[in-house]
Amino acid sequence: MEGQVNAWDSVSPEELLQGGDVTEGVVRSGDTVRRPHSASSERVRSLLIHLERVGFAGAPRYLGVDDRGRDVLTFVDGEVARRPAPEWVASDDRAASVASLLRAYHDAVGSFGMPEVFDDASPIRPEGSPEPFPVPNELIGHRDVTLENVVFRDGIASALIDFDLARPSSRIDDVCNLLQWWAPWQPVEDRPEALADADACARAAMLVDAYDLDAASRSMLVPLARNTAERTWYSMRLRAERDGGGWRRMWDAGVGDAIRRRQEWLRKNQEALTKAVM
């Protein structure tokens, strides 16, 4: 039954799951994942229930809350690119399958609409941050399609995990996020070693084709990516100051400098990147 968890399952041995930058204390217990209750819990619960109802198989199932107040999800078995990223993240076929999975997610989440529970999910605009690029919200985007948040089976992307950053968004917002990590649209010094030699233009062209992104949206990808990078510096600084924890650790480790480098890389390469995705 929705919202129920078998009592026997709550006492299974627990294994700490690595890879997250922000959420701590995520464990595997038997065939389930236990996550500390957070501000995003109700949003994630409603989203995962919708995805199950419409038959989307590429996400965990929400099971309920355990006797310690943790959210309980199904454990999605398969390969995940833990750090340091394995060599297989450079596979074009694998990357293309991530784009196809993201398209399938968008098609499935479209009927979810914009539930009220997501009203407080949109990020605030910190002082000094530029205006957001004018892209209307059309669905609940995943917004965190990192190398670590995709589960593969037999070399094919089979599931997205970690929906904590899901919020009102657009298809191209998520595609920009996809390009940041899987093309990857960032300077060589900030890429995982496995992607250091990747051709960001060729990979981007392959990814937008695999997603089957329309021509009008393709024309907005580079300016949206630049705007997002500019705004991310301010939002990351705010979260480090306001929320601390993993956000503070990332900021102290130099993520702000990495974002500045990405801004410059996008500026220098905007002409080639635009040509590649059109």
Rank of each mutant, 00 (worst) to 15 (best):
C201H: 12
I259F: 03
L179Q: 00
V145F: 08
H142S: 12
D9F: 01
E2G: 10
L238P: 14
R261F: 09
R45D: 04
I49K: 15
G78C: 08
W265K: 00
D21A: 15
P126T: 02
L51M: 11
G25R: 12
A85Y: 02
S29N: 02
L101M: 11
A258D: 10
A253F: 09
E241S: 15
A99N: 02
L102Q: 02
L102Y: 03
L160A: 04
Q263S: 13
V277T: 06
S129K: 06
G25L: 11
A81H: 05
I161W: 03
F152Q: 02
L273M: 09
I49H: 07
V255Y: 12
R28I: 05
V151L: 09
D164W: 02
P184N: 03
V175A: 01
K268T: 03
K268L: 14
T274I: 05
E42H: 08
W265P: 00
W247D: 13
C176Q: 00
A225L: 05
R70E: 00
A194I: 09
E42Q: 10
N6L: 10
F133H: 10
R231G: 05
A7N: 11
V44A: 15
W182I: 08
D71K: 05
G254V: 05
W247T: 13
R267Q: 06
A215C: 13
D21T: 15
P136S: 13
P187S: 08
P115M: 13
D67E: 10
N177P: 14
R43E: 08
R260M: 14
R267T: 03
S235E: 12
I140Q: 05
T274P: 09
T23G: 03
D164E: 13
S10D: 11
E24M: 14
A205W: 11
Q270L: 00
L238R: 15
